[in-house]
C-alpha cells in the first residue's frame, strides 16, 4: 500500500492506504479526526468540507492521494490556544446549529467564502452555501452567523 503524507492542521501526517481511500476516510479512519462528517457520500451535502491548500473541497469527492503533499485544514484545526475561531464563535452566539451534523462542513465553507468575499451581503452568503445542506436550522441563523463572523474575521 502506498504511503500518503500531507500536512493536516499544521502537523505532518502519514498513513499507508489503498489508492481508493477517500480524503475523508484518511482523516477520520487513519488520523482519527472525526470532526469532518460524511452526510451523503454523494457530493451533495457538504458535511465533509475541508480546506486543501486554502480552498474548500468536499473530502468525500477527493482521493487521499490527490491531497498528498498538500496542506489540509479540518474543523479541529481552527481553534487556536483554546480560543474558538471567530466563525465558530459566531455559530455559537447566533444559534447557527441545532443537531450540529452539518456544522463542521458549514463552518469550513463559510470561512472560505468570507476569505473570498470579505464583506458579503446576505444574498452572497446564501449563494455561496449552495453546496452545504442543513436539515435542522432553515439556514436563517447560519446566514446570520456568517454575516456576524465576516465583520470579525481578518478585520
Amino acid at each position: 500500500m502506498p504511503t500518503v503524507s500531507m500536512k493536516v492542521n499544521g502537523q505532518d501526517a502519514s498513513a499507508d492506504v489503498e489508492p481508493r481511500t477517500l480524503l475523508v476516510q484518511y482523516l477520520r479512519e487513519h488520523l482519527n479526526l472525526t470532526g469532518t462528517h460524511v452526510g451523503c457520500d454523494t457530493s451533495q451535502c457538504g458535511a465533509c468540507v475541508v480546506h486543501v491548500d486554502g480552498r474548500s473541497v468536499k473530502s468525500c469527492t477527493m482521493l487521499a492521494m490527490q491531497a498528498a503533499g498538500s496542506e489540509v485544514t479540518t474543523i479541529e484545526g481552527l481553534a487556536q490556544n483554546g480560543e474558538l475561531h471567530p466563525m465558530q464563535e459566531a455559530f455559537k452566539e447566533n444559534h447557527g446549529l441545532q443537531c450540529g451534523f452539518c456544522t463542521p462542513g458549514m463552518i469550513m465553507s463559510a470561512i472560505d467564502l468570507v476569505n473570498r468575499h470579505p464583506n458579503p451581503d446576505e444574498q452572497t452568503v446564501r449563494e455561496e452555501l449552495e453546496g452545504n445542506i442543513c436539515r435542522c436550522t432553515g439556514y436563517h441563523n447560519i446566514v446570520k452567523a456568517v454575516l456576524d463572523a465576516s465583520g470579525k474575521m481578518g478585520g
Partner: peptide, 9 residues
C-alpha cells in the same frame, strides 16, 4: 456550475 467546492476541483 454546481457549488463553490465543485468549482474548486
Amino acid at each position: 456550475i454546481g457549488d463553490p467546492q465543485v468549482r474548486n476541483m
